[in-house]
Structure formats: structure tokens, C-alpha cells
Amino acid sequence: MTMTGSSRRAQTSRTDGEDGLAALPPPSSAAPRPRRRRRRAPVGAYICLVLLAAVFLLPLLFLLNTALKSDADFLADPVGIVTEPRLQNFVDAWVQGHFGSYILNSIVYTLGGAGIGTVITMLVGFPVARGYIAGGRIWPIVFALLLFLPNSLITQFQLLLRLGLYDSRLGYVLMVAVGVGVGPLLFTGFVKSLPIELDEAAAIDGCGYGRYLVSFALPLCRPALTTIFILQAVWIWNEIILATVLLADQEKFPITVGLFAFKGAYSNQWGLLAAATMIVAVPLVVGYIFIQRYLVNGVLGAVKG
């Protein structure tokens, strides 16, 4: 297998199961060579991988490096590796920043919001995909509209206010829960790949719709639901503006607002700021390591359908 040039884009996309066999040819190769099985490591590919890791990991490592410096150290040498690591920054940041409650709030909002959102997506997407609900043609349009609704910050605020839910965790969770975005569209696409005979078989056996959803559809749709959940969760996790407007009590702030306010207050003390950022980032990375398996499998399943 030859490659024209060394750009990654020109590399073959081999599907799973085959060994990687292509070698990095000299850039001047032109004519395709006959396929041969050669057991040489694809150096070029590995170099690219290392570069990739550098681009994505170095910034985080730099953050860690800065977090371990005192302010004086940082001013003296912002870039170099820290010589006298100190954990005091972390202690200070934790004490001054209420990060414990920020992280907890973010988790509650994300899990709650994405959870409710996913449930809504399923409850709304399944009947539409199967055609069990009247008005079959307009619902997909409605779902598409969900994707690009206008920025309704102002009116969402007024709505929550009139419902008496301003500055309440419940109000915020409800507001982010409906940010389902592309979920329903994705879900309806997936459901179409489930054979309708399954529904009918379950119904013949006397299974009600509700039970069917929970016992049969849910496990089958798990990959798609996982993807939808994760997409919405990521959005909620990153959400900063709604939180600024809809929440007033500092105790209820999610990380985004809390960290940003911290930056506003201590913007010059990079060591402290970096430590605060690390406090927020580390649980994310750790949690991510655990769920990333589900993520890839989930998306694989969803898109295959």
C-alpha cells in the first residue's frame, strides 16, 4: 500500500481486524505498488499520534506546572518547569473558592438536566419514529426547529420568574433539561433501525406501551440514548450564561460561573487561578476516563443505526 505524501489525510483507513501494514514511503513515490504484507511498524502514524497527544495534553500539563508555582516564581519564570512545587495554591483556591459546592452543583445540574432531557427525548422521539402519534409530518420539523431556536435568554428568565423558580436549582435544571438540541432527531433515526415486529410481538404478549418502553426499548436504544445523554451533558456542563442570569445565590453556581467569578476576582494570581482550574479539571478527567468507553460504543451504535 503506498501513500502519496505523508499527510495523514492520505493514509488508508483500514477497518478493524487487519494489522496496520503501510510504511511511510519517500515523498516522490508516484505509481502504486502491488500490495505486499510487510510487518513494519507505521512510524509515520505513531509520530502523528505523539504530536496529537502533545497538542492535547501539553496544555493541561502546563496548567499543572503553573498551579504548583507561587506568584513570585511565576512572575520570575512563567514558562519553565517548577523548581519548588507547592501545594499551598490548591489549599488556598479550595478555601477561597467554594469549589466543592460548585462541582457538586455542576454534577447535579448536568446529571439531572441531561437525564430529564434524555427521558424527554425518548418519550417524544419514539412515538414519532414509529408513527404512533398523530400529525406525523410536522413532528420532525418541530425536532429540527429545536436545533436552532433563537437565543431566548431574556424570556426564559421572565418565565422562570413568573413560575417562582428564579434562583432555584429546580428552575435551572428544568431550563437546561429542555436543551435537547439534536437529540430527538438522532433518536428518531436510531429507532427506525429497530424492527417494528418487536413492538408487535411484545404487544401480542400483552405488554403495555409503558412497560415496553422501559423493558425492551430502553436497553435496545442504550447506545443512542447514551450518546444523546452525553451530548446534552457536555452542553450543560459548559453552560455559563443561563446560569449567570437564572441563579443569584453563590451557593447554587455551577463550576462555569464559579470559576469565571474566581478569575474575575483573582485574575492576576495565575498560580492560584491555575490551581483552581486544576481543581475543576481533575475530577472531570478522572470521571471521563471511566465513561469514555461507553461514549465511543454509544456513538458507534447510534450512527450505525
Partner: peptide, 9 residues
């Protein structure tokens, strides 16, 4: 991972 970290981080 960067997607997980969020905008503020």
C-alpha cells in the same frame, strides 16, 4: 478530553 473540560477551563 477538551470537550469534557468545558469552556471555562
Amino acid at each position: 478530553m477538551p470537550t469534557i473540560l468545558g469552556v471555562t477551563v
